[in-house]
C-alpha cells in the first residue's frame, strides 16, 4: 500500500527530502516501516535505530499498523526547549 511519511531534522537532511512515499504490505507495522526505510534510504542507517515514528499526532509502538497511512512522521530524538 502507498504509504506517505514526513521527515524532520537530521532524518530529513540525511534523506535529502522532507517526505517519502513507500509501498508497504497491508500488514506492515511501525517496526516494518523502520526496516523498509533503511532499505530505501541507506543514508539513514547511522540513526535508524533511534528514529521515532509518529502516526498522526501520537508516537507509534513497534506493533502499530502503518500501511496506507498518509499522516506518518519519522524523526530523531527531540531537542526542544
Amino acid at each position: 500500500m502507498k504509504t506517505v511519511l514526513k521527515l524532520f531534522a537530521r532524518a530529513r537532511d540525511l534523506a535529502g527530502s522532507p517526505a517519502l512515499e513507500l509501498d508497504l504490505p497491508d500488514s506492515a507495522t511501525a517496526a516494518d516501516l523502520r526496516i523498509a526505510l533503511g532499505e530505501r534510504v541507506p543514508a539513514l542507517e547511522p540513526i535508524l535505530s533511534s528514529l521515532l515514528i509518529a502516526v498522526g499526532n501520537d508516537y507509534a509502538a513497534p506493533t502499530t499498523p502503518v500501511a496506507g497511512r498518509t499522516d506518518l512522521a519519522v524523526f530523531p530524538p527531540v531537542s526542544g526547549g
Binding site: A9, R10, P46, F75, P76, V78, S79
Partner: peptide, 23 residues
C-alpha cells in the same frame, strides 16, 4: 522529552549539528 521540536547548533568554527539526544 516528547514534543517534536529540534535545535541545530551553529558552532563558532562554522560547523552545524542537529541536537538529537541519545543518538
Amino acid at each position: 522529552e516528547v514534543v517534536p521540536i529540534w535545535k541545530k547548533e551553529n558552532w563558532s568554527d562554522g560547523s552545524t549539528e542537529w541536537v538529537h539526544p541519545g543518538t
